[in-house]
C-alpha cells in the first residue's frame, strides 16, 4: 500500500512517481513532491519508481497571488 496525501492507495510495481501523478490527475508542472520526507527533484519524477509503503506528500499549487 502507498499513502498519498494521507490516503491509502494500492501499490502497483513498476510505476514511476510521474506516472502516479498523472493517474491521480496532478499536473506535474504545478506540484512539489515529497517522498518519505524528502523532496523529489523534478527531473527525477519520471525516473523514480514508487515503492511499497511509500508515503508521498503532493503539494499542488493553484493560481492566484
Amino acid at each position: 500500500m502507498l499513502k498519498v496525501n494521507g490516503k491509502e492507495l494500492n501499490y502497483v510495481p513498476g510505476t514511476t512517481i510521474a506516472e502516479l501523478l498523472e493517474q491521480l490527475n496532478y499536473p506535474v508542472a504545478r506540484v512539489a513532491v515529497e517522498r518519505n520526507g524528502e523532496i523529489v527533484p523534478r527531473k527525477m519524477l519520471s525516473l523514480t519508481l514508487v515503492e511499497d509503503h511509500d508515503v508521498l506528500e503532493v503539494v499542488s499549487f493553484v493560481g492566484g497571488g
Binding site: R30, V31, A32, R42, V59, F61, V62, G63, G65
Partner: peptide
C-alpha cells in the same frame, strides 16, 4: 507569485 507553474518552479 500568482502563476501556479512559477510557484511550483520556485518551491522545487
Amino acid at each position: 507569485f500568482d502563476d501556479p507553474e512559477a510557484k511550483a518552479m520556485l518551491a522545487n
